[in-house]
Design a protein around this nucleic acid. Structure first.
Length: 607
RNA sequence: GGGGUCGUAGUUCAGCCCGGUUAGAACGCCGGCCUGUCACGUCGGAAGUCGUGGGUUCAAAUCCCAUCGGCCCCGCCA
């Protein structure tokens, strides 16, 4: 960290306001502006000094424009340009003139004109930037984050953040138009059980007590429905104290939406309309509606994922029945244990080498403890290590189920269905990437519906919510909730995810608006009535006062921005993200604090 | 918490396997020359805690151990 900034040399004429107003953005000038007198402010992108003539590319948020300093035309301005360096901030005046045919730069939107400078002032000097600001990112991420103000000057980051802004404009425009009211909810809220680890904030005036930063405004938006706002939205900041990933930051934004009395299709049509507006504003793309819909069970069965990427036609095949009675020991034993055999069949044009197959099998064996069985399908039988254990009858049945043609490669896994399907789902995506089966330009939207209400946590030895504990079950499944935890696992939820190209864009549910049912769900989750009353009493109370049926959805703003910008990293669509260890290299957060601050908060740091 | 990978001028990287002169390149920076460049050109120059600490060795950027940091992944997280 720099202890002090070296005093810039020619800064004796400090003027807090530019000497003249700006008439145009540099990058917004066009051929049609030729002949105008313009006044510009901007950063020096590059300077090309020909000894006499000096060219400067001046940059602002709209782009760059070429300035020409000619000593014969204006010696004073030329003298200023001689002393100028990269990232100096200049104010200039001059005439926009059409370039001669030979000097037009077709690479630049402003390339048909240039500015003959008649006056120039240095509003601020600059140290030499620590990394190049032109072109794509060419510096380590740590350095980009430390000098984020410079990184954000780059055209790519300017474009990403503006696209994100446009996307949010699209969301707001749609929601405003459809009667949704934007309401802010507190950042200082209370810790609740379930879900992710909370960020805690100590209370000075209540020693020993803590606020929690909201993981989402879930409970508050439900209470706003009880309060009668009928339709609510918010671009909400959410906080989760979990380990980071390329697409996970400790604080992130959601478009949070709730409405009173919706049917499932009301929410879906609304969300599709909003997404269409986002794509229209954010990318100028018109997306097709309504979106396709697929039950969770089907998604898992066909694609091994609850967020299938439909850009790829490859599907999983259930071969359990085809191998019934097989003499291949591994499969026979799996079937005897009640397990399943699933497979992916690659077409003949997608060949894997023996080495690739072995590596794939080795990865599955070492990481998952699963044995991959593979076979290449020839006209007269199968080839591969297991071929000799498979009878002609079985081959025929498998060929039928999996639609095998000669030349195909069959990749099979045997094991518990809950394990085999997701593994093959991952394999499917890896194969799709390897053989370039994904159309990069396609936008395959999908609603995944009919999620299970509960899952069983081996770790905690209890039921856990698949979505969150406020998700309503399907009405026809209510009796299952009364029949104990085992039967409750069969219950389905009125929950849905919006999936785009294999990414979860958003998800939501119809909520429980009945206090008794809510208590029942808490009970199934192993939360005793007393604890529920202590931690969620305010919600239960609210539900008891004429709470209307309600439901909603929340979208990941950052994910949406990533899709729109075509980047794989959240950090490229956030202005000030944190590193994988949740540190901000620019400000140094999180930092130690004064002993006095800790004392006021009644906090002692354990050694 | 675990696995992988990277860390060498301001920046991006080579050198590391196989230890041995003065640790190189490009871009950037500084200075000279240059009136149509747009990644200007050209001549010259400065610039290094080889992440840090320890060990092995006559000798370590290079081999070993530990540690810190970036990134990716698993766990975790919807």
């Amino acid at each position: 960290m720099q202890a002090w900034i070296p005093m810039p040399e020619n800064n004796n004429a400090f003027s807090p306001m530019p000497p003249w107003p700006r008439t145009n953005y540099c990058g917004a000038l066009r051929a049609a502006d030729a002949g105008r007198e313009v006044a510009l402010w901007g950063w020096v992108a590059t300077r090309r000094d020909h000894g006499g003539l000096i060219f400067i590319d001046l940059r602002d948020r709209e782009g760059i424009v070429q300035l020409v300093f000619n000593p014969a035309h204006n010696p004073a301005a030329h003298a200023v340009a001689e002393g100028v360096r990269g990232e100096y901030y200049l104010a200039i005046k001059g005439a926009a003139v059409r370039r001669s045919a030979a000097t037009i730069n077709a690479e630049l939107p402003t390339g048909e004109i240039e500015i003959m400078a008649s006056a120039a002032e240095v509003l601020n000097t600059s140290l030499a930037p620590p990394f190049p600001l032109a072109g794509p990112d060419s510096a380590a991420e740590e350095i980009r984050l430390k000098y984020r103000y410079l990184d954000l000057r780059r055209a790519e980051m300017q474009s990403n953040l503006r696209r994100r802004h446009q996307a949010l404009r699209g969301a707001r425009a749609y929601l405003d138009e459809h009667g949704f009211i934007e309401i802010e909810t507190p950042i200082l809220f209370r810790a609740t059980p379930e879900g992710a680890r909370d960020y805690l904030v100590p209370s000075r005036v209540n020693p020993g007590r803590f606020y929690a930063l909201p993981q989402s405004p879930q409970l508050l938006k439900q209470i706003l429905m009880v309060a009668g706002f009928d339709r609510y939205y918010q671009i909400a900041r959410c906080f989760r104290d979990e380990d980071l990933r390329a697409n996970r930051q400790p604080e992130f934004s959601q478009i949070d939406i709730e409405m009173t009395g919706p049917r499932l299709e009301d929410i879906h049509r609304m969300a599709e309309g909003m997404m269409a507006s986002i794509y229209q504003y954010g990318a100028g793309i018109t997306i097709e509606r309504p979106f396709a819909q697929m039950p969770y069970d089907e998604a898992m069965e066909r694609f091994g994922s609850d967020k299938p990427d439909l850009r790829c036609a490859l599907e999983l095949k259930n071969l359990t029945a085809a191998f019934a009675g097989t003499s291949f020991k591994v499969f026979a034993e799996a079937i005897a244990r009640g397990e399943s055999i699933y497979a992916i069949a690659l077409k003949g044009e997608h060949q894997l080498s023996r080495r690739e197959l072995d590596e794939m099998a080795e990865t599955l064996r070492s990481r998952q403890g699963m044995g991959l069985a593979w076979a290449k399908v020839a006209a007269d039988g199968w080839q591969g290590p297991i071929a000799k254990f498979v009878s002609a009858k079985e081959r025929a049945r498998v060929a039928d189920v999996a639609g095998l043609v000669p030349g195909a490669t069959l990749l099979m896994l045997a094991g518990p269905r809950g394990k085999v399907r997701p593994l093959l789902g991952d394999l499917r995506l890896a194969l799709a990437a390897k053989f370039k089966l994904l159309d990069a330009a396609a936008l395959k939207f999908l609603w995944v519906v009919d999620f299970p209400l509960f899952d069983y946590s081996e770790e905690e030895k209890r039921l856990v919510s698949v979505n969150h504990p406020f998700t309503a079950p399907r009405p026809e499944d209510l009796p299952l909730l009364e029949a104990g935890p085992q039967r409750a696992l069969e219950a389905h939820a009125l929950a849905y995810d919006m999936v785009l190209n294999g990414q979860e864009m958003g998800g939501g549910s119809i909520r429980i608006h009945n206090a008794e049912l809510q208590l029942k769900v808490f009970e199934l989750l192993g939360i005793p009535r007393a604890e529920a009353a202590a931690k969620f009493g305010f919600l239960l109370d609210a539900l008891a006062y004429g709470a209307p049926p309600h439901g909603g959805i929340a979208f990941g703003v950052d994910r949406i921005a990533m899709m729109l910008c075509g980047t794989d990293s959240l950090r490229d669509v956030m202005a000030f993200p944190k590193t994988q260890r949740a540190v901000d290299p620019m400000s140094g957060a999180p930092s130690e604090v004064d002993a006095r601050q800790l004392r006021e908060l009644s906090i002692r740091v354990a050694q």
